[in-house]
C-alpha cells in the first residue's frame, strides 16, 4: 500500500531527528592527543539496552540492581568525556562554549553554577512534566581536569540517589541539589506524556 508523501515525509524527519546524536562530542576530540589520562564513554540507546540485559548477572549481587535497571531502561544515552591534563592551560572556557550553547538552545535549565577560582561546576537539567528531567548534564572544570557528563532520558534526582553505594558507585546525598521549585517554574506549560 502506497502512502502519500505528505504522511511519509514528517515521519521520516521525526525518525531522523530521533536518531541524531544529542551533541556533537567530536568538538572535544581535540583533547585526545593532549593527554593519555582520559575516559570517553558513549552509550547510545542500543548499548544501554544491551548493558541493561547484563545487569544483575554474574557478580552483581546487589539487591538494588533493579533501581539501576529501572533508571537505565528510561535512558536514551550516556556520554562522558573526562580529560586529565599534565599541565595547566590545556583547555579554555571557549572549548566548553559549544556545549553550553547547545544546552541553552535546547532549553535546558542550569540548576547549579559554582565557580571557585579556576574551578567550575555547572549542572543542567532538561525539565519536562511531572517534576522529571529529560536529561542531566554536568560540566566540571578544574585547572588540569575537564569533565563533561551528558545523560539523556527521563529521570529525577532521586533516581540517582537510589544508586548510592551500589556497584562501587560512591554514596552521594544529592538532596542539596534538589531545587524542584526552579524546575517547576522552568518546566514547559504544555504537559507531555513520557514515552
Amino acid at each position: 500500500m502506497k502512502r502519500p508523501l505528505i504522511f511519509t515525509l514528517p515521519l521520516l524527519c521525526f525518525r531522523l531527528a530521533a536518531q541524531q546524536p544529542p551533541f556533537d562530542f567530536k568538538s572535544l576530540d581535540k583533547f585526545d592527543s593532549m593527554t593519555e589520562h582520559k575516559t570517553k564513554i558513549t552509550l547510545d540507546g542500543d548499548m544501554l539496552k544491551l548493558a541493561g540485559k547484563f545487569l544483575g548477572s554474574d557478580d552483581d549481587k546487589d539487591k538494588d540492581v533493579d533501581s539501576i535497571k529501572n533508571l537505565v531502561n528510561n535512558l536514551k544515552g550516556i556520554y562522558i568525556r573526562n580529560y586529565e591534563f599534565d599541565k595547566d592551560g590545556q583547555y579554555t572556557q571557549a572549548d566548553i562554549e559549544p556545549l553550553r550553547a547547545y544546552l541553552k538552545q535546547q532549553q535546558w535549565t542550569k540548576i547549579v553554577e559554582q565557580q571557585d577560582g579556576k574551578e567550575l561546576s555547572e549542572v543542567y537539567v532538561q525539565p519536562i512534566a511531572n517534576e522529571k528531567f529529560g536529561g542531566v548534564a554536568i560540566i566540571a572544570a578544574e585547572t588540569r581536569e575537564l569533565t563533561v557528563v551528558y545523560i539523556s532520558g527521563a529521570m529525577n534526582l532521586s533516581d540517582l540517589e537510589k544508586l548510592g553505594g551500589n556497584m562501587g558507585i560512591p554514596d552521594v546525598d544529592l538532596s542539596d541539589l534538589k531545587d524542584l521549585n526552579n524546575l517547576k517554574k522552568a518546566a514547559p506549560k504544555k504537559e507531555k506524556k513520557d514515552d
Binding site: 575516559t39 564513554i41 552509550l43 544501554l48 548493558a51 545487569l55 539501576i68 537505565v72 550516556i78 562522558i80 573526562n82 542531566v136 554536568i138 569533565t147 557528563v149 545523560i151 540517582l160 544508586l163 548510592g164 556497584m167 562501587g168 558507585i169 560512591p170 552521594v172
Partner: peptide, 9 residues
C-alpha cells in the same frame, strides 16, 4: 555504564 554512573555521581 558503571564507570559512567560513578563519574556522574
Amino acid at each position: 555504564l558503571y564507570t559512567a554512573l560513578r563519574i556522574t555521581r
